[in-house]
Design a protein around this nucleic acid. Structure first.
Length: 271
DNA sequence: CGGGTTACCTGACGGC
DNA sequence: TGCCGTCAGGTAACCC
C-alpha cells in the first residue's frame, strides 16, 4: 500500500492534527498482535504522555513522547485517523485528554505497532538496517548507488525496492521511476552505468517529491490522515497500464512479474 | 551472504 | 446470488 509519499502525507496530516501536543489519556489495544506481537506494556508506557512530534523514517511513522516513541508501519492497508466511529479492523485506539481518539486500522494486518526507546532508533531491529532516505542529497547519491550496485545480480527494480539500499520506494514508484530513467526493470543492477545511476537518483527523488505534492497515490484504501484521497495516481505513466499506449512513443506497455511483483514498462523507451 | 520463493491476511472483482 | 480464483501499495521467513 503506502510508499514514502503516502507515509509522508500521513505524517504531515498527523502533525497538523496533533500540533497542540495533546496528552495521551489512555491506549486501548483491540488485539495482542497485528503481524507481530504488540508490546503488552505499550498502553501503560504511552499513558499520560504528551505527543511532542510526528516523524518519518523510511515507511515508518514515529509518534514521539518524552518517555518513549510509538513506531508504526502501515503495511499494505494500514491507516491512522481521528475516529468518530468504530471499524472492525481498528486494532488500537489512542484516547487523547482533549476528547479526540486516534485509531490505527489495518484490515490485512501486514502493519506493525512497536515501541522505540528515546535515542534508540539506531538499535531498533526494524530501523537499524535501513538504507539512506532518498530525499537526502548528502547520503543518497550517484556514487552511493553505483558502488552498492556493483556486485548485485538482482533486477534493478528489485534493487531499488530493497529498503536496505534505499528506503521508501515501493512497487508503484519503482516502475514509475524506471520509466522516467529509461531503464528496464529487469536490467541487472550490476550492469548500470554511473550515468544511469545518476539518472535513477534524480528520478526517484523527482517522482517521490511530485507525489508528496499531490498528497500521495490513492488506489483503493489509502487515505490522508484527514480522510482525503491523494492525487498522484492520476499521473501514473506506466503503473497498472499494461497494453495501454506508452505516453511517449505510443507502443503498448509491457507487464510481467519481477521479484514477485507486477511490473510495468515500455520496451521501446526503456533499455 | 545473495538471490529466489512463499507466507502472512482481508477484501474486491471477474468469470461461471 | 454465490462460489472460486486472482490480485492488491510490504516485508520477513524460508529455502538453496
Amino acid at each position: 500500500m503506502p510508499e514514502l509519499p503516502e507515509i509522508e502525507t500521513v505524517r504531515k496530516g498527523l502533525e497538523n492534527i496533533l500540533k497542540n501536543q495533546p496528552v495521551i489519556k489512555r491506549v486501548i489495544l483491540k488485539r495482542a498482535d497485528i503481524r507481530f506481537p504488540i508490546p503488552p506494556t505499550l498502553p501503560k508506557r504511552l499513558a499520560n504522555q504528551p505527543i511532542t512530534s510526528v516523524r518519518r523514517r523510511a515507511k515508518y511513522l514515529l509518534i514521539e513522547t518524552p518517555k518513549v516513541i510509538l513506531l508504526s508501519h502501515l503495511g499494505m492497508t494500514g491507516s491512522w485517523r481521528i475516529a468518530t466511529d468504530e471499524d472492525k479492523h481498528d486494532h488500537c485506539y489512542i484516547e487523547l485528554a482533549d476528547g479526540r481518539k486516534l485509531a490505527f486500522c489495518d484490515p490485512r494486518r501486514f502493519g506493525l505497532l512497536d515501541l522505540v526507546e528515546i535515542g534508540g532508533e539506531e538499535k531498533h531491529p526494524r530501523l537499524k538496517e535501513l538504507g539512506p532516505e532518498p530525499l537526502d542529497t548528502k547520503t543518497f547519491t550517484t556514487a552511493y548507488l553505483f558502488q552498492t550496485s556493483r556486485k548485485r545480480k538482482v533486477a534493478t527494480k528489485v534493487f531499488i525496492m530493497n529498503q536496505n539500499i534505499v528506503v521508501g520506494v515501493g512497487n508503484i514508484y519503482a516502475s514509475e521511476a524506471l520509466f522516467r530513467a529509461g531503464i528496464r526493470p529487469t536490467r541487472q543492477a550490476s550492469q548500470l552505468t554511473q550515468e544511469e545511476c545518476g539518472r535513477l537518483v534524480k528520478v526517484i527523488r523527482e517522482v517521490l517529491v511530485e507525489s508528496i505534492k499531490a498528497g500521495g497515490s490513492t488506489i483503493s484504501d489509502y487515505r490522508q490522515a484527514g480522510g482525503e484521497e491523494g492525487g498522484f495516481q492520476l499521473t501514473f505513466q506506466v503503473y497498472d497500464r499494461a497494453s495501454e499506449p506508452c505516453l511517449k512513443c505510443k507502443k503498448p506497455l509491457r507487464s510481467k512479474i519481477v521479484g514477485g511483483r507486477s511490473t510495468y514498462w515500455c520496451s521501446h523507451c526503456q533499455k
